[in-house]
Design a protein around this nucleic acid. Structure first.
Lengths: 258, 258
DNA sequence: ACAAAAGTGTTGTCTTTACACCCATGG
DNA sequence: CCATGGGTGTAAAGACAACACTTTTGT
């Protein structure tokens, strides 16, 4: 089936497969070379970008739906993925569904009482991935899937700017409670690497000597005997996460201030 | 209309007024005489208790819906009320809607494809109120509305035990970020009163001398020149919240450890 | 005068921050 | 040998925790 037929099928039959009135949108943060990026989709026929999103199947858990959406766009599985807020109060969500207008731009008409034209609440999730491992794939409604630096975001469709802002704010708060990194760094990494990661995520500089003390004191990371050759400079030591402590911290929570 | 007619009307016509597949459940914490309570509803015809909940009207914001539900059960308005998680993954939510079974106990039959029989995701909110100001009112499905000590909760319907547990956990975390109390204490209150409040909420004892220092240092509370007569004991000074700082803290967040 | 609750400050310990020099590596 | 980035420890300041005696009030 070509795209138009698939969309038409979704309009006509989607309500048999998917839960109505409810969608998921994911703020997928990518970390690469000291920059924080967000994965965006460009809609067909208009100059509009949005976050990756999707619907929940009737027989699927919420967590599974979010994981599926993430996998469809990025190819990645087993990623830290967390719901942080339901969005439903923006004007266009309450009064009039934007979806119908967007599809109009693609010359597709949504019937007035169609399930897709209904008011939709969106459950916001965020995820953290290593962006060079991602193979971005657009979905039915979009023609491009690309990373965008979080500091250079355009105006997004729907209430997606609000979603990104809150996702970042939530992520920064979570850093005091949860260990982060095992999905973002290679198995073995150097102190400067994890240091840069935290600086990028928090958007502020952290003392180069004090920072590792905290992670070491918590037992989250362990120093290895090996070093990595980085060219014309002193070779930094490699570290790895202590997954026993890491996972314990994921469950029980931390209380660190960076 | 009597209750059965109202329920029948909700089953037949509710889908015109309310959003499908989605509900709200509120963990309403009540504080009174150093105890933390939760507001529960007893369902008609069975020995089952649940949290207060409800549906979202099609033209209503999420926040407004939660506030309406809270007001319908408690009579209170302008209460701190916050969403903390969407629940949708429990077995009975995915596989089979409990609602149909519960209504069977009330001798009401829900047709197979009725909107109320659909899988429902519930957005969890929590709120904090002074329980002596509450006038608990049951809803259509319930015959009793009562406070229950949080340490003596029975097994609740649906996944509501999980909801209460997570609400309490979230509340305790929020205490480090948000000032709490202006809805829970009289305008003027004593140090022992706010001290007891925090001890109850956190479930641990706090040093009687160190505790006020933090609130005073943050500028959240201010000492007044008046005292309150408490009978055969020394009269404690009265304090009030400094609403300017209190509201600023609500927005910007705190970082205190109690 | 006694019982019950409230008021108040200091000291020691721990945590956090600030800070600079030397070393390794490749070109 | 030079340029660049990485490695490392200590001291001062600040935050936090522990702690007990005196005052008020009503009976």
């Amino acid at each position: 089936m070509d795209t138009e037929k698939l969309i038409q099928d979704l309009i006509d039959n989607g309500h048999k497969t998917y839960i109505g009135n409810l969608s998921i949108d994911c703020t997928i943060f990518g970390y690469h070379e000291r920059r924080l990026k967000v994965l965006l989709l460009k809609w067909k026929g208009i100059e509009g970008w949005s976050l990756p999103g999707g619907r929940i199947k009737k027989t699927e858990t919420l967590q599974a739906a979010a994981a599926r959406i993430l996998q469809e766009r990025t190819g990645l599985a087993n990623i830290f993925l967390k719901q942080y807020q339901v969005f439903g109060d923006s004007d266009f969500r309450v009064k009039q569904p934007e979806m119908t207008n967007l599809l109009k731009a693609m010359k597709i008409t949504v019937p007035k009482n169609n399930w897709l034209a209904d008011r939709t609440f969106s459950i916001g999730f965020y995820a953290l991935v290593e962006y060079s491992e991602v193979d971005p794939k657009p979905d039915l409604f979009t023609e491009e899937c690309n990373w965008c630096d979080i500091n250079e975001l355009p105006e997004l469709l729907f209430d997606h700017n609000e979603m990104v802002d809150l996702a970042q704010k939530t992520l920064r708060q979570e850093l005091s409670y949860l260990p982060i990194g095992s999905n973002l760094l290679p198995k073995k990494f150097t102190l400067p690497e994890i240091h840069d990661l935290y600086e990028t995520l928090l958007g502020k500089s952290l003392d180069r000597r004090n920072f590792p003390k905290k992670l070491l004191a918590l037992g989250i990371i362990k120093k290895l005997a090996e070093t990595r050759n980085i060219g014309a400079h002193r070779s930094p030591f490699l570290y790895r996460f202590d997954m026993r402590n890491y996972n314990r911290a994921l469950q029980e929570g931390l209380a660190v201030q960076f």
